[in-house]
Every structure is written in structure tokens, then in C-alpha cells.
Computed example of a mutant assay.
Amino acid sequence: MGSPSSTRQRLRSRPRGDRGSVTTETVGYTVIFLLALTVIVQAAVWSLADQSARHAAKEALQAARVYGATAESGYSEAAEVLAETNPAGIDDIQITVERGPVTTTVTITGTANRVVPVPGLTVPIEVQVQAPTEDVPPVR
């Protein structure tokens, strides 16, 4: 068995090729973790914006398709619901309501807000709902 001083000397003479590797790995894993977190948050923002657009489109469809309604009533309903449910979640919103004699169609398009402003990256939202137009007054 060797003396404690010879053990220390052997430990000191080892090659130090992997010095600092823990620090480098930690930095790498932190970057990957933050990137994954950003993607998850962006997906959540898109999902909330998409759900808001779907809800607004369905409400607008119901407002526009009933007997005596107009496309403008559907448009105003969609704008109101979007303002209430997701006031800043969708950019470049375009609402289209077409009330025909057979079907009524509501289309809402836009882009979800970006968590990190990456040039050229847009997260599109497009919702279209359609239902028969009511052409007779409701029975009372």
C-alpha cells in the first residue's frame, strides 16, 4: 500500500483532457432546454389563439345564419367575441362572413402572436365553419 503523498501525486499527474466538460455540457443542455421551452410556449399561444378563432367563428355563424340575420351581424359578433376572448392573441385578423340562400360560411384568418420574434416565422390561423342558412321564421 502506498503512502498518502504518493496517491496525491498520482492523482495530480493524471491527464486533464476533460476539464471543464461539465460546464460545457451544462451550457449546451441549458440552450436546448430554453429552446424546447420556447417551442412549448409558442405552441400554447397558437393553441389559445386557434381556440379563440374557432369559438368566434361558431358564434358568428350562429348570428348570421338565423332567419332575418345579415352577414354584418355575423361579422360584428365575431369581432366582439375575439375582442373578449383573445384581445391580443391574433394579429392580422380577417373575418369573412358569406350568407347565401343555402349556406352561411364564416372564415377567420390571422397569425398567432410570436413568443420570440424570429424573422420569417409566422404561425398561421385559419378557421372556416359552415352551416345551412335558415330561410323560414322559427315556429312559436
Results as ranks from 00 to 15, higher is better:
Arg12Gln: 02
Ser13Asn: 04
Leu11Tyr: 00
Pro124Val: 13
Glu77Gln: 12
Arg10Pro: 00
Pro15Gln: 08
Gly89Cys: 08
Ala83Lys: 06
Gly100Lys: 01
Gln128Val: 09
Ala36His: 06
Ser6Thr: 00
Arg12Ala: 06
Ala49Val: 11
Gly100Glu: 01
Ala44Leu: 15
Gln94Met: 06
Glu59Ser: 13
Gly89Glu: 12
Ala88Asp: 13
Thr104Arg: 01
Ser47Gln: 15
Ile93Trp: 02
Ala56Cys: 11
Tyr29Phe: 13
Arg12Phe: 00
Ala53Met: 08
Val81Gly: 05
Ile93Pro: 05
Arg99His: 04
Ala112Trp: 10
Thr70Glu: 04
Tyr75Asp: 06
Thr105Asn: 01
Pro132Phe: 03
Met1Tyr: 00
Thr38Met: 15
Val97Pro: 04
Asn86Gln: 14
Gly100Gln: 02
Asn86Arg: 08
Ser76Met: 09
Gln62Lys: 11
Leu11Ser: 02
Thr70Cys: 07
Gly89Thr: 05
Glu59Leu: 14
Gly74Val: 01
Gly100Tyr: 01
Glu126Asn: 11
Asp92Val: 04
Thr23Asp: 10
Thr111Val: 10
Ile95Asp: 06
Phe33Ala: 15
Ala112Val: 06
Gly100Ile: 01
Thr26Lys: 06
Arg8Tyr: 00
Thr26Met: 15
Gln42Ile: 09
Arg114Phe: 09
Ile40Cys: 15
Val22Gln: 10
Ala60Arg: 12
Val39Ala: 15
Gly110Gln: 05
Glu98Asp: 09
Ile90Tyr: 10
Ser73Lys: 07
Gly68Ala: 04
Val31Gln: 07
Gly20Asp: 13
Leu82Tyr: 08
Gln130Cys: 10
Val22Asn: 08
Gly100Asp: 03
Gln62Val: 12
Ala64Gln: 10
Pro101Ser: 03
Gly110Ile: 03
Leu37Val: 12
Val139Glu: 13
Asp92Ile: 03
Val31Trp: 08
Glu80His: 10
Ala131Phe: 02
Met1Ala: 00
Thr24Gln: 08
Val41Leu: 15
Asp50Ala: 13
Ala64Ile: 07
Gln9Trp: 01
Ala79Asp: 07
Ala64Arg: 12
Glu134Phe: 01
Asp50Thr: 11
Ile108His: 04
Val127Pro: 10
Ser76Ala: 09
Val136Pro: 00
Glu126Ala: 14
Pro87Asn: 02
Asn113Ser: 14
Val123Tyr: 14
Ser3Phe: 00
Glu59Met: 09
Asp50Glu: 14
Leu82Asn: 11
Arg8Met: 04
Arg14Glu: 09
Leu82Val: 04
Leu37Ile: 10
Arg8Lys: 02
Val115Glu: 15
Val139Ser: 10
Glu72Ala: 11
Val81Phe: 13
Ala57Val: 02
Ile95Ser: 06
Pro101His: 01
Ala43Ser: 14
Thr111His: 06
Asp18Thr: 07
Ala63His: 07
Tyr67Trp: 11
Pro124Ala: 10
Glu59Asp: 14
Glu25Cys: 04
Pro87Cys: 00
Asp92Asn: 12
Thr24Tyr: 11
Arg19Thr: 14
Glu98Asn: 08
Gly89Ala: 06
Arg14Asn: 03
Val41Arg: 10
Val127Asp: 12
Leu82Lys: 05
Ser76Phe: 04
Ala43Leu: 15
Leu48Cys: 15
Leu11His: 00
